[in-house]
Nucleic acid binder design. Structure first.
Lengths: 119, 119
DNA sequence: ACATCATTTGAACACTTGCTCAACTGTGAG
DNA sequence: CTCACAGTTGAGCAAGTGTTCAAATGATGT
């Protein structure tokens, strides 16, 4: 019972072991992937960039992204679920903002990465 | 021709204008979203974490992730397409590694974010 | 030339995703 | 209370995604 993973030829066990050690714990990795996935949609990414700059209500977001209020609300729900955005109610209007500076940092890093590649 | 976007009530035009100014250029935003999307899949994220630690061949990756070689190869193709990984051929074996330190940084930041949230 | 091994690729499929539309909350004004 | 408005939610659907399986490359050894 050595190659029980599948019928895969293993080239370097030590290297594999070192790489496995670097993987985050499964629950952390799942969360990281889920959060990256949220950033991986253009509409949500625009929402987050906008909220990184300004606190905005749902209809303002819809206006500036040129998408329906319903679509924005659906996406905000997902973002809320991952704790990426926070909201505050003021009368009938709900204002959203980024919940976390790490996310701002991650977006800035990735933007720098892409912009450095295009030069 | 003022509210030509849709039938949305605009709450604060100045705030919208400021937020729009912060959005990256469309081509940049598209690339950023595409790269985040790649990081948003657990299999690919594991591949990238592993490659962030060690240069590895396809079959080693398949072994350490416990997925098929074909699945790994398909994902590596996507990662290559975005310029996230680089490869080098040595005889029959193809070794992959991260192409870019920015990506390593982005993954580290996101991991820090998640781990700070779970405390 | 042939067999073998590591990897790539294409087609097929189940599953997921992001949108729209319509119905529903919930808050403030008359 | 009733109406209008900001936002949320659920169902439905077209488009996209990740995996598997089988066939095709491409390099090495005999």
């Amino acid at each position: 019972m050595d190659s029980d993973i599948c019928q895969v030829t293993i080239v370097d066990r030590q290297r594999i072991a070192r790489a496995v050690d670097q993987l985050p714990d499964p629950p952390v990795l799942t969360e990281v992937a889920a959060t990256f996935k949220l950033l991986g949609d253009p509409t949500r990414l625009k929402i987050l960039h906008a909220l990184a700059a300004e606190e905005l209500c749902v209809c303002d977001l819809a206006a500036l992204l040129a998408v329906s209020i319903s679509a924005v609300s659906h996406q905000l729900r997902l973002l809320r679920g991952q704790g990426v955005v926070r909201f505050r109610r003021e009368g009938k209007i709900v204002y959203y903002q980024l919940d976390d500076d790490h996310i701002r940092q991650v977006m800035a890093d990735m933007r720098a990465h892409i912009e450095s590649c295009r030069r």
